[in-house]
Amino acid sequence: MRRLACGNWTRAARSNHCTCAETARRAYRARMSGPIVDRIDIVRHVRPGSPASDDPFRPVESSAEVRERVAAARARQRERFAGRSWRLNAHVPSPRLKDTWPLPAPAQQLIDAEVLAGRLSARGAVRVHRLAWTVADVRSVRTGRDLEPGVDEVATALRLRSGQPLDLAMFQQRPGAEGAA
């Protein structure tokens, strides 16, 4: 009988409670490659919280605040796609995305470099392009000004796709940005 992966593996040795053999973990990773992984836009490795990870001086963001920001980002997308048959960045057909909402040359070069290096497929490149627009929409809400995706948004989209750590400064409101349009 074939056993499923236990799901308890982590990189941190102290918190690793995985009971699977390395061959089982490797087989699971092999099954999760190629076309399946290519359809996953955002990869995040979430570690359990610890007392040391709590910053008592950082204000906690409520679910209502996050919901408000997401609703505002979606409203920006609805405005952008008014009169079209889609409402969200995720729904835009690839050809329309490339010809109507292209990325600036330096931002597109980041994606092209990943494709040429074999770290990103053509499908993945389109998904990063869409995700960069979403990052720009969320940042626009946070900064209070209209943004289109550039190098920073594409770099963030690539990090979101690959599971790399994010630069949280990308999502923090800049001083003096309140009320700016």
Results as ranks from 00 to 15, higher is better:
residue 31 R to Y: 02
residue 126 V to W: 12
residue 29 R to P: 03
residue 65 E to Y: 05
residue 153 E to S: 05
residue 88 L to Q: 08
residue 88 L to W: 09
residue 35 P to Q: 02
residue 121 S to M: 04
residue 93 P to C: 01
residue 29 R to I: 05
residue 170 M to V: 15
residue 135 V to H: 12
residue 163 G to P: 02
residue 164 Q to R: 12
residue 37 V to K: 15
residue 17 H to K: 13
residue 10 T to C: 03
residue 63 S to Y: 00
residue 64 A to L: 10
residue 82 A to G: 04
residue 126 V to T: 15
residue 37 V to G: 12
residue 22 E to S: 07
residue 58 R to E: 12
residue 59 P to L: 08
residue 81 F to Q: 09
residue 16 N to G: 04
residue 159 R to Q: 11
residue 85 S to P: 05
residue 35 P to W: 01
residue 117 A to N: 12
residue 131 L to A: 11
residue 55 D to H: 03
residue 127 R to L: 13
residue 3 R to N: 08
residue 80 R to A: 13
residue 18 C to L: 03
residue 148 E to F: 10
residue 56 P to Q: 08
residue 108 Q to G: 06
residue 8 N to E: 12
residue 166 L to G: 09
residue 176 G to K: 02
residue 112 D to Q: 13
residue 95 P to T: 01
residue 52 A to F: 02
residue 95 P to C: 06
residue 64 A to M: 03
residue 120 L to E: 06
residue 150 G to W: 09
residue 94 S to I: 12
residue 106 P to D: 10
residue 137 D to W: 09
residue 159 R to Y: 01
residue 28 Y to G: 01
residue 18 C to W: 05
residue 92 V to N: 00
residue 99 D to T: 14
residue 100 T to P: 03
residue 11 R to S: 08
residue 160 L to H: 13
residue 174 R to L: 15
residue 170 M to E: 14
residue 115 V to H: 06
residue 91 H to D: 14
residue 8 N to Q: 12
residue 85 S to N: 08
residue 6 C to S: 08
residue 142 R to D: 00
residue 34 G to P: 07
residue 102 P to V: 02
